[in-house]
Computed example of a mutant assay.
Amino acid sequence: MHSAKKRKSVRAAHAGTGRGPASRSSHREDRPRARYRALLIAALAVAGLLGSVLVFLNGGTTGASSGAGDAMTRMEVRAPAGTPAGTGTPTRVPDGKPSVTPGGKPHAAPTPGVTKPGTGSAAAGTGRFITAAASGKPVGTGAIRRYKVQVEQGSGVPATTAADEISGILADPRGWTADGHDAFQLVSSGPYDFEIKIATPPTVDRICGAAGLHTHGEVNCDVGDQVIVNLKRWNTGSPEFPGPLHDYRALIINHEVGHRIGHGHEGCPGPGRPAPAMMQQIDGLHGCTANAWPYDSHGTYLGGPPVP
């Protein structure tokens, strides 16, 4: 009797403290869970290590380089002379180097700015272009350069409206026709010398990138027989250029066409004087005042010293 009671009390004590046979069975069931947790923790640690390696291989960031825009404000890139669109290795030219582009040598013009809401600069383009059904008489005297105006489908820019504005810029008496030996004619078909295309930033990156030019969704470029105008710049201008948006558009066209007819970069001629249209005004005015036109209303060339 005493032995039976003693055995019952021992089993009760084990049950109360969790050290009986039932407890040992429970520990055996927990071992697989413990192993699972250990394996899970190890897997997470390995994933974290792989993520760190990928970040290191990407230069410390998993996104695009944060310095891309800054680099484009300090540097102009262009392909070697005579490189057709879509071929060649780009040459990076620091500011201060000449960038004469007769015949359409590719180059990217650094004109970054801030997108303003509601301007359509974030429009989704199709990659296809509409040629403006517009043409005009030659303006200026001398060799005639025929050009087309095209806009990307989905950009929100009417082709004829863009053609009217661009042809007005090239026909302005303050424009390149004032030199007495350059003339331009807007055409919608037939032979032409170059195209002026307004394109969404991704399309600009694709076209310019095919020639080795990195526009980073921000800037314009001149490649082959094409002047590629970034829709973002066309719609928003640049915070570095005060004044009407039309004047900034005039600066884009005059600068790019100026390269096309053989002009290189120029510097500020002196404090308070108009900045040349061939000056990289985005890099700072250096005492000059912002200006979009190569000539003044009296036919005087608004030039500056050649940039060596």
Rank of each mutant, 00 (worst) to 15 (best):
R249Y: 09
N220D: 13
I166R: 02
R233N: 14
H286W: 11
R273W: 05
G287F: 02
G243R: 02
P269G: 06
G272N: 06
T203F: 06
Q280Y: 12
Q153H: 12
H255K: 07
E152V: 07
Y192R: 09
G270T: 08
A171P: 01
I252H: 03
C208G: 10
P202S: 07
A277M: 04
I252L: 13
H181S: 15
L245E: 00
T203I: 05
G267K: 01
C288E: 02
Q153V: 15
L170Y: 01
W234Q: 12
E165R: 12
G224M: 10
G154C: 07
L251R: 09
S238K: 14
T215D: 11
G264A: 08
V187K: 05
A178G: 07
V157T: 10
L245I: 03
M279Q: 11
D193V: 02
G284R: 13
G262W: 07
G212H: 04
A163W: 00
Q153I: 12
Q280L: 12
L213E: 07
Q150T: 08
T236A: 15
D172S: 11
I207M: 08
P269I: 01
P276C: 10
D172Y: 01
G209R: 07
P173L: 04
P158K: 10
G243M: 03
S167I: 00
G267F: 01
P202W: 11
E256S: 10
P158C: 13
A159N: 01
A178K: 06
A178I: 01
G168T: 03
W176V: 07
K197A: 06
G287Y: 12
A159D: 00
N291K: 03
G156S: 14
Q153D: 14
C268T: 03
P271V: 10
P269E: 04
I207K: 08
A171L: 01
A199F: 05
P201D: 10
C288S: 09
K232N: 14
C221E: 12
I228K: 12
G209I: 04
T200V: 08
W176G: 01
G264Y: 02
L251V: 04
A183E: 02
M278D: 04
I196L: 11
P191C: 02
P191K: 06
V223D: 15
E218M: 15
I166S: 01
G168E: 09
D205Y: 11
G168M: 05
P276H: 05
A163D: 00
E152A: 10
V229D: 03
F194G: 05
Q281A: 15
V151L: 06
H216Y: 15
D222M: 14
G217R: 08
F241Y: 14
G262A: 07
G287N: 12
G237E: 06
K232W: 14
I261T: 10
D193N: 12
E256A: 09
R174M: 02
P244D: 08
D205E: 11
A250N: 02
